[in-house]
Amino acid sequence: MISIIRTMWLTFLHMFHKRATIQYPEEKIKLPARWRGRIVLTRDPDMGERCVGCYLCAAACPVDCISLQATEDEHGRRYPEFFRINFSRCIFCGYCEEACPTYAIQLIPDFEMGEYNRQNLVYEKQDLLINSEGKYPGYNYYNVAGLAVKGKDKGEGANELAPVDVHSLLP
């Protein structure tokens, strides 16, 4: 008996506490930058596609909801021919972001993705790609990789020596 009254009293007191709920959707919630929501593909500082089609995010994904096909431009720069995330399967674990060696794939603080039709939760590259570097500005994978791409020849990357002269032995 006592305990029931005590419980009711405590519940009653809650009416005067600060509210944890908000009036969504009229009122929007403020989420921290590292909140794991909608997944995007970001761009390099030079606004090229950051994703190099390495398949690591796909391999890391525990529900296997990422699929892509890598391809190359005429200068040898890799990018995804298609890139698909099936958000109806995604569990927003963020493993893909952790696996990504180029900071291309990022989870952002946005969860407003509800759909009436499940098919609409299948996002293609054009739905994923944003015109921003996201959380990691300034990083350009090709600058630190050894591969030559347009605008960066062999030996022009960060911490690279000029290419070896193979004929240096000749008189």
Binding site: A59, D64, C65, N86, R89, V122
Partner: peptide, 16 residues
């Protein structure tokens, strides 16, 4: 065992 994309590769045509 690390085959990827199982739930996504055909999703363009049908999400199931």
């Amino acid at each position: 065992h690390r085959y990827s994309g199982r739930t996504s590769m055909n999703a363009k045509d049908n999400v199931s």
